[in-house]
């Protein structure tokens, strides 16, 4: 195993779960699936389409997102929005993310005490 082989695996491990946080955060302003995919990609969070669409479905089932069909344009699109429960969940996840970041920063500065 070379560095180039192990890096993608570790990055994947590190990024697991960030798609949920990023989606809940981005969908505080409503948007449809493809647009979310682009927004996340532009922001530097690369999620595969075949991961994101089922994820939106699950978050909706869990009540963290609400959705409605937008029929004003030529093609109907499902527009998602973070629900009140979703906001709470996002807060909890962000708090934990921050705790992890602080912990890592401390460890990086100090090493083993």
């Amino acid at each position: 195993m070379t560095w180039n082989d192990t890096l993608p695996t570790h990055l994947q491990e590190l990024r697991r779960g960030t798609a949920v946080v990023a989606s809940l955060a981005a969908l505080r302003s409503p948007g449809h699936g493809y647009r979310l995919l682009q927004t996340l990609g532009d922001a530097g969070i690369n999620v595969d389409a075949n991961t994101l669409y089922p994820l939106l479905r699950r978050l909706e089932d869990q009540g963290l997102l609400t959705s409605e069909w937008d029929t004003t344009e030529s093609r109907p699109r499902k527009v998602y929005r973070t629900s009140a429960d979703g906001e709470q969940m996002l807060d909890a996840l962000l708090t934990d993310l921050e705790a992890v970041r602080t912990a890592i920063a401390t460890l990086t500065d100090r090493g083993i005490s």
Partner: peptide, 16 residues
Amino acid sequence: EIAAELRSSIDDMVAG
């Protein structure tokens, strides 16, 4: 439901 969602997403991606 899933068929409609998936089709609309695919159409968006193709259009993109």
